[in-house]
Nucleic acid binder design. Structure first.
Lengths: 255, 255
DNA sequence: TTCAATCATGCATGTTTGTGCACGTTTATG
DNA sequence: CATAAACGTGCACAAACATGCATGATTGAA
């Protein structure tokens, strides 16, 4: 049947190779190249996307954005979903508060949303978030060596600096959120900083888009139970929510 | 259908790149470049604007600059003049250097220009400059309380942090540059920080657009003679240049 | 071998998405 | 005020899409 017969796995490996080299792939081209129907290619791509090996787009697929990519890149990904999470999160910020905003694309959305509130102070280790807030609120910049992947200062200097703060509210950015593993970061230094500031804060809050929920990442930050509030999307699986609420975490639904 | 077919996402990424480099984009040009109708381009731009990735304007779009400290408002003023100063200044940055970039609109232009150089480390107290450099160079962020007028950290914390650095090159932003008064800042804390970092640097450089030259501001930073190099525009008055060169400062003309 | 179960695939179906065009409105500029 | 360019919107159409189903190949146990 297959003129140049490929096993499914072979084909998908070839697609991955093409993605790695050119960064993009068209369904039509692939169908022609492997002499299968576009339907089959689409099935492949769907499968691969589910495994995080590519990003499905209309017409083909793109190389996956590495989760360690500068978080600004990810800010563009699902703006309206992040925006609704941000709107929900911002409601917990009250006048007079000292808020710590961790580095994350959703927190950047929060920073943009924050415009209306006055009389608050925000501390952050992320230059992009700081830029967005500079002329809106009183701002404390956490310095140190900037990690390119995280997009924020995370070194020893940053650690000792955040240890001087005592925020009323800490909004963590998370790589993954899972009932057992807790809130996770991508590397150790980032996790360490998140842990320190979270422990020093009067309350801790996190936002989680669907794809982050249930994801376990290598380094945990704090146990789920230590996070007071979690903002999730409306259509989040009821089971996931039950697991998290069972730990005493207040789950907030974004509009 | 598409002669040089682009996926939608690819096109938008390209537009973002163009925006990042040139700061502006015309709908007509883009339509031609990607061989789609202007309607499509407009839809893209509208979408991107909704995500905060650009600002829609009549005829095209501009790079997003929602935040701007007072000093940054001037960044948009005469982009091409600042750009040429920046190009001239960047040539003095060499591989392996530790460069301190002070808060100023011209320094933001320098940060944007710096893309090509590799193997350098930049330290800055300005979030906007840090944002621009984040994924280009090794970055040291100077923390502290951010002064809204300056657009950078200038408090006691920032002061003690810069005292730990020993840059090869320090590029100062100036409110005014005058042979007698020297390089001046707008308020005391800013001046103090500039002075400390300038004294600690192996070499000091400043850029001055025409309107800054000869301007005396309330607080001086360092005497003109302590500044090794001054980058000025081509059409600067010969008399001004003579006064400054008389103090042993090397004057560089921007192309 | 034989038969059933599983799998990959193509095709037909109805749906969604991106795009261009026509229309009337807004905007910049002389 | 006049004019042309840029604009937003509704509409139409084709391409890309998801899904269900039929088909033929492959596998594994009887």
């Amino acid at each position: 049947m297959n003129a140049s017969d490929f096993l499914v796995q072979e084909r998908q490996v070839r697609i991955r190779e093409k993605l790695a080299t050119s960064g993009r792939v068209l369904a039509g081209d692939l169908a022609l190249e492997f002499s299968v129907s576009e339907d089959t290619i689409r099935r492949d791509l769907r499968e691969m996307a589910a495994a995080g090996l590519c990003r499905r787009v209309y017409g083909g697929a793109l190389a996956p954005v590495p989760p360690t990519a500068p978080f600004m890149e990810r800010a563009a990904e699902q703006p309206e979903r992040k925006h609704s999470l941000a709107r929900a999160a911002v409601q917990f910020i009250e006048q007079g508060m000292l808020v710590f905003l961790d580095a994350s694309s959703t927190n950047l959305a929060i920073a943009r949303e924050i415009s209306s509130i006055s009389g608050i102070t925000v501390a952050t280790n992320a230059p992009l978030i700081a830029s967005a807030l500079m002329d809106k609120v009183d701002l404390i910049l956490i310095g140190g060596t900037v990690d390119r992947r995280v997009g924020a200062a995370v070194g020893g200097k940053a650690l000792s600096d955040v240890a001087l703060l005592r925020p009323d509210l800490c909004i963590l950015g998370a790589c993954g959120v899972e009932a057992q593993a807790g809130i996770t970061a991508f590397h150790l230094e980032d996790a360490e900083l998140k842990r320190v500031i979270a422990r020093r804060s009067r309350s801790v809050m996190t936002t989680a888009t669907a794809e982050k929920l249930g994801t376990a990442a290598p380094h945990d930050v704090i146990a789920m139970a230590e996070c007071g509030r979690l903002v999730v999307e409306q259509d989040t699986a009821a089971e996931t929510i039950r697991d998290i609420e069972a730990l005493g975490v207040e789950v907030i639904f974004a509009a």
